[in-house]
Write a protein that binds this DNA or RNA. Structure first.
Length: 646
RNA sequence: GCUGGAGUAGCUCAGUCGGUAGAGCACAUCCUUGGUAAGGAUGAGGUCACGGGUUCAAUUCCCGUCUCCAGCUCCA
């Protein structure tokens, strides 16, 4: 009878758009969705009430805010993928009954499930698993939630020898835990899940990889299967197409193809050779970078590639950074170390003489090449290498100047990134880790300054708690590449450690010695990584100001060679990076070649152009642009270069 | 470093159940002088990643190493 009372009661449900409506208590989110429309009801995957996610069949007994989660929402996607991982686990358990299951979460694009299996999965296994999954999906099995006491759950999974589940359950503090069952598979899971397996309309298992239990290399290696799923076949097709497109943009493919860089086994893994065309681009990037730094009040410095080991002991690198440092070498009975960082040199420049508060802030920048040992498995094209050039700088300032200096760094960062066509990135503020140097007040002050600077610059950011470096809090700006991976380029770090270790001082207005604050920052990060990101960002179709070859002259027949050579000389004289294709080939062929080489402008000259003393312009990926005189075109393209367009 | 996969011409890839290899593109020479994404002929080009082992014989089978790829872990 008590139930009836609840059922007769009315509750108020508020929707995301702010509207609200009365419903009988005990109604489920699915029923609410049905009352709104059949389309929503069929798209509904789960629900969110007051910030908590629940199943569609969970009764609502109190006034609440309610959002119906569909695949269009990130939360909906995650639930959808997570449910697919359960389906995959069921299929795997059916095919390989002795396997043990570990965890199977949703990730940014899809899901995975880790299994403990003696022998790794094969591609054939994946096909079998896929068809088993298809059966489960076609059976449209409901996902059923069940609550159990912790003890019962331990007993339940203990009987099945699911030791990974036991380990997870043991760590749960709640007394009751939830289990989800679909078909013959029951998993310990917080949920929620989609109503039934039939909601999965298209899926694909994408790859197999080893992964350590709980991501710790001391633990057992598990077999991980990655997959992705969608409510429409077309969405899966789009996804696969996007992966293909990403592959085409891969800088490791485009780099050698466009003759930008090479990595040669004989030279060594993770060591980059900049080919002439890549080197031209690097020069342009460096020149622009130097100009920008002068503009923003930096001075440029240089420092050596090696230094006595004592310097690295002073800086603390031998203590905190040995794993990434190469072996020191013996010179004149002293140890010298190839540099993994530039910082100590800039400290040494600071201490090269007495400093006054009048000099601060000091901003010293250097394109400093460093060498770091990276484990072989982490090397990745230009993105992760063993020798690279950081666009490094150190700012020495007083506490009063800190906020303005950080804002200044953000300004120059955005100035640079915008010029290179980057307008989207994720910003993180990393706070104090467990192990740290310096005082709590110092950390507090610096973190506040970093936060304040971001807020003043109206940049949205996320907090990365405890992810700061031991020597100070930092701001990281990450650029996303074509494969969806985030690459950290910009890092702005406050450093309490080095000023202390190098005993940096300045004479204050008060006649006393004070210690300056140091900001360590790299904006592009490293030229290598940034170049890799740049290649993928533009898919090799660089804007004119960056393109290694800006234009190519394509004479139609030999009769125009003299005219073409004259044009070539004049363009060279104008500082345009131009080539002349005087091979005895048809224009079609030369055009195709120029297009595949992604040269921004093709200047086609035949009999007509020579007679009219003009050129026919074709733009890469766009097509014919009509004719212009050389002067007109040069003026236009110079403007384009000037404003870094294209 | 770990797990799995891979390494054949500059590139993309065939192939050899053990008898030292082939195509297309690119390259060179010649023919062709063609108007907006591939004209034709001929030619050159390979220690089949490297080092061992088995064998009359290894690019092929076995072991090891290196590198690359997908991840894990760690970072600019």
């Amino acid at each position: 009878m008590a139930d009836d009372n609840i059922k007769n009661a009315q509750i108020k449900i508020t929707f995301p758009d702010g509207s609200s409506k009365e419903y009988p208590a005990g109604i489920t989110p699915l029923e609410v969705a049905e009352s709104i429309g059949p389309r929503l009801a069929s798209d509904a995957l789960a629900a969110r009430i007051d910030g908590r996610m629940i199943d569609l069949n969970a009764p609502l007994n109190e006034n609440t805010e309610l959002a119906i989660l569909t695949f269009d929402l990130d939360e909906g996607k995650k639930i959808y993928w997570h449910s697919t991982s359960h389906i995959m686990a069921e299929a795997v358990k059916k095919l390989f009954p002795n396997i043990k299951v570990a965890i199977g979460p949703a990730i940014d694009e899809g899901f995975y499930y880790d299994f403990d299996k003696e022998t790794p999965f094969t591609p054939e296994d994946l096909e079998k698993i896929e068809s088993e999954m298809q059966k489960i999906i076609e059976a449209d099995l409901p996902f059923c939630r069940e609550e159990m006491s912790k003890d019962d759950a331990l007993k339940y999974f203990g009987e099945q020898d699911e030791n990974y589940k036991l380990e997870l359950i043991e760590e749960i503090e709640d007394e009751a835990i939830s289990l989800y069952t679909q078909g013959n598979f029951t998993d310990f899971c917080r949920g929620p899940h989609i109503p039934s397996t039939g909601k999965i309309k298209a899926f694909k298992l994408t790859s197999i990889a080893g992964a350590y239990w709980r991501g710790d290399e001391k633990n057992a290696m598990l077999q991980r299967i990655y997959g992705v799923s969608f409510p429409k076949k077309a969405m899966l097709d789009d996804f696969l197409e996007r992966m293909e497109e990403a592959k085409k943009r891969d800088h490791r493919k485009l780099g050698p193809q466009l003759e930008l860089f090479a990595i040669d086994n004989e030279v060594g893994a993770g060591l980059v050779l900049w080919l002439p065309k890549g080197a031209i681009m690097r020069n342009i990037i460096e020149d622009f970078w130097k100009e920008a730094h002068k503009l923003f009040g930096y001075e440029l410095v240089y420092s050596p590639h090696i230094a006595r080991l004592e310097l690295w002991e002073t800086s603390g690198h031998t203590q905190f950074y040995t794993e990434n440092m190469y072996q020191p070498m013996d010179i004149d009975e002293m140890k010298y170390q190839i540099k993994p960082m530039n910082c100590p040199f800039h400290m040494a420049i600071y201490t090269s003489r007495m400093r006054s508060y009048r000099e601060l802030p000091i901003r010293w920048a250097e394109l400093g090449t460093v060498y770091r040992y990276e484990r072989s498995g982490v090397l990745h094209g230009l993105m992760r290498v063993r020798g690279f050039t950081q666009d490094d700088a150190h700012i020495f300032c007083t506490p009063d100047q800190l906020l303005d200096e950080i804002k200044g760094v953000i300004d120059i960062t955005l100035y640079l990134l915008h010029a290179f066509g980057f307008h989207e990135y994720d910003v993180y503020l990393s706070t104090r880790p467990e192990k740290f140097v310096g005082t709590l007040e110092g950390w507090e002050m610096a973190t506040k300054a970093l936060r304040q600077a971001l807020e003043d610059k109206k940049m949205s950011f996320k907090i990365d708690p405890g992810e700061g470096v031991f020597y100070g809090p930092k701001i990281d700006i990450k650029i996303k590449d074509a494969l969806g991976r985030s690459w950290q380029c910009t890092t702005i770090q406050v450093d309490f450690n080095l000023p202390e270790r190098f005993d940096l001082k300045y004479m204050g207005k008060d006649g006393e010695m004070h210690q300056p604050i140091t900001i360590h920052r790299a904006l592009l990060g490293s030229l290598e990584r940034f170049f890799g990101v740049l290649i993928e960002h533009y898919a090799g179709n660089f804007p004119v100001w960056l393109a290694p070859v800006q234009a190519i002259i394509l004479p139609i027949t030999e009769n125009q060679y003299d005219y073409a050579k004259d044009l070539y000389k004049r363009l060279k004289g104008e500082g345009i990076r131009v080539e002349l294709d005087d091979r005895s080939e048809k224009v079609d062929y030369k055009i195709r070649d120029a297009e595949t080489n992604k040269i921004p402008y093709m200047l086609i000259v035949g009999k007509r152009e020579e007679e009219a003393n003009n050129i026919s312009i074709r733009k890469h990926l766009v097509g014919e642009q009509g004719t212009q005189t050389l002067e007109e075109w040069v003026k236009k393209v110079k403007e384009e270069i000037e404003k870094k367009g294209g």
